[in-house]
C-alpha cells in the first residue's frame, strides 16, 4: 500500500468535516474522489498532504507512520524530521496552481529538487526538460507563469510536482479554475500519467474523466464515504440513493 488512512476525523470549530474516513491507495491505482461542495473531499486531500492536521486517525505512507491516534484519542504526528521523510512520498497539484510567480517555468520545476533534495543540477535539468516535453511545453522553459495560460500553468505545476519523483500524486480539483478548452489539455496529461501507471488521487468535478480514467471512484458526502468502487459500477449502477441524486444533477 502506498497510502493508508484510517479513522480520519477532522473538525473545524465544532463542524465535523471528516467523520471516520478510511482510504487506501495501492501502487498504480488512480482514485477519483467526487462529491458536492463541502463534502470534505478537499479536506481529505489536505489532511493526506499534512496541510491540515487530523484530530484522530492514522496516516501511513509506504508503511511508514506519519500520524496515529495516541493514548488520549487524539492524533499524534511523528517528529518533524520523520514527517519530512514521509513528505517525499507524495506530491500535490492545487486548484489554483500556486506556481512561484518570480521563478521561470524551468526554475519552478528545478528549484525544489536542487535545493531541497540536493540533487545534481545537470541531472535535474535534464529531467525537467524531459518533463516539459511530456507536458508539451518544452519551448516555454524560460517563460514566467504570468505569461502562460491557466492550462499551461497547471501543466507546469504537474511537472513541478513530478520532478520530486513522488510515489503518489494528489490533485485538488486541478481543472476547476480552467475554462473547458484548457480543462481538456490538463486532463489529457493526467490521463497520460494514468497510462504510465502513476499512482494518483484526483478530487474532481469532471465526471466523464473520473469514469474513463480512474480504477476506483469514491463518492463523498457530509464527511463520509457514501459509496466507492469500480467507476462503471458507481456511475452506471449506483447503490446509494444519495449517489443517484448527486449524479442525476450532473447529467442534466
Amino acid at each position: 500500500m502506498i497510502l493508508e488512512m484510517s479513522g480520519i476525523q477532522k473538525s473545524f470549530g465544532g463542524l465535523e468535516v471528516l467523520k471516520d474516513i478510511s482510504l487506501e491507495v495501492d501502487s498504480g491505482e488512480v482514485v477519483s474522489v467526487i462529491g458536492p461542495s463541502g463534502s470534505g473531499k478537499s479536506t481529505l486531500l489536505r489532511c493526506a498532504t499534512f496541510l491540515e492536521t487530523i484530530d484522530a486517525g492514522e496516516i501511513r505512507y509506504m508503511g511508514k507512520p506519519a500520524a496515529a491516534t495516541g493514548s488520549q484519542g487524539k492524533a499524534v504526528y511523528v517528529s518533524h524530521s520523520e514527517l519530512n521523510e514521509v513528505k517525499r512520498y507524495f506530491g500535490l497539484v492545487f486548484q489554483q496552481f500556486n506556481l512561484f510567480p518570480h521563478f521561470s517555468v524551468l526554475r519552478n520545476i528545478m528549484d525544489a529538487p536542487v535545493f531541497v533534495q540536493k540533487r545534481p543540477k545537470e541531472e535535474v535539468h535534464a529531467e525537467a526538460m524531459e518533463l516539459l516535453r511530456k507536458m508539451n511545453l518544452e519551448n516555454r522553459a524560460d517563460a514566467y507563469p504570468c505569461q502562460l495560460s491557466g492550462g499551461q500553468q497547471q501543466r507546469v505545476a504537474i511537472a513541478r510536482a513530478l520532478a520530486l519523483k513522488p510515489s503518489i500524486l494528489f490533485f485538488d480539483e486541478p481543472t476547476s479554475a480552467l475554462d473547458p478548452e484548457l480543462t481538456g489539455e490538463v486532463l489529457k496529461v493526467i490521463r497520460q500519467l494514468a497510462e504510465e501507471k502513476m499512482t494518483m488521487v484526483v478530487v474532481t468535478h469532471e465526471m466523464p474523466f473520473a469514469r474513463a480514467v480512474s480504477n476506483r471512484v469514491i463518492f463523498m458526502d457530509r464527511g463520509v464515504i457514501v459509496e466507492q468502487g469500480d467507476p462503471e459500477e458507481v456511475f452506471g449502477n449506483p447503490k446509494q440513493e444519495r449517489t443517484v441524486q448527486f449524479l442525476r444533477n450532473y447529467q442534466r
Binding site: K87, N98, F100, A112, V116, Q117
Partner: peptide, 20 residues
C-alpha cells in the same frame, strides 16, 4: 497557496520566507 506549495515541495520555513 504560496506557503502551501512551498510546504508540500519540502521547503523549510526559512527557505520559504527568503526564497519564495
Amino acid at each position: 497557496g504560496q506557503y502551501e506549495a512551498a510546504e508540500v515541495l519540502g521547503y523549510g520555513k526559512a527557505q520559504t520566507f527568503f526564497k519564495i
